Amino acid sequence: MIRITSKIISPSVRELLSYATSEAKIDQEYEQYAQASNRILYGFENAGTMVGCIGVEFLNASDCEIKHIAVSPTERGNGIGSKMVQFICEKHSLRNIFAETDKDAVDFYRKFRFKIISLGEKYPGVERFFCEYEIPNK
């Protein structure tokens, strides 16, 4: 895992973020990672190619929210998403990790043992879910 700090978004990171947010918001979201001191974007490389990314926002010293998580479609199902979440758990002294997601991604969080709460239809025809993971004591 590498911390992505470049002021200019690379094509591979742009593509990954397109899986996690709308095309119209990519530049705005990337700018927040570059500017905000409480946001960090990490990349996951495989054989020198960026195949995953995870962006988090620290809410305080012990809690963070996953703002974006994405894995290249050709690499999905290989445990990369889980490795990125595990990295966040190990790298930072966290107590809780939160995320909000849709029906397509909620099973990923369920498999990682996040508690899932339906938020209902936040947008017409789109059910959203609040996910919470309490990190076990070490």
Rank of each mutant, 00 (worst) to 15 (best):
G48E: 09
S22R: 11
N38G: 00
Y133D: 04
R14M: 01
A99D: 02
K122I: 08
I135Q: 15
E31C: 10
S12V: 03
F129C: 15
Y19N: 09
Q32V: 11
G43S: 05
P136Q: 13
F130E: 12
F114G: 09
T5Y: 08
G77P: 12
I9W: 03
S37P: 06
F108Q: 13
G52E: 05
Q28I: 01
A34I: 11
R76F: 00
M1I: 04
I97H: 02
T5D: 06
K115E: 13
I80E: 01
R76M: 07
Y19E: 07
I66W: 02
I66N: 04
V56A: 02
S72Y: 06
E45K: 11
T49F: 14
S10L: 07
T5F: 01
G52M: 12
E65L: 10
Y133G: 09
S12N: 09
L16N: 00
E65S: 07
E29P: 01
K103M: 13
A47P: 08
S12P: 06
F108D: 09
P73V: 06
I2G: 09
A20C: 07
S93C: 11
I69E: 06
A61R: 05
K111C: 15
Q86A: 13
R14P: 03
C131G: 03
H92L: 11
T49C: 13
K83T: 00
D27W: 07
S6Q: 12
V51H: 02
V106R: 07
K103Y: 10
L41M: 01
G79K: 08
S82T: 05
E23I: 11
D107Y: 13
E23C: 10
D27M: 04
Y30W: 01
M84C: 00
I117L: 15
Q32L: 07
I26V: 13
S118G: 15
V85R: 02
S37A: 07
G48T: 15
P11S: 12
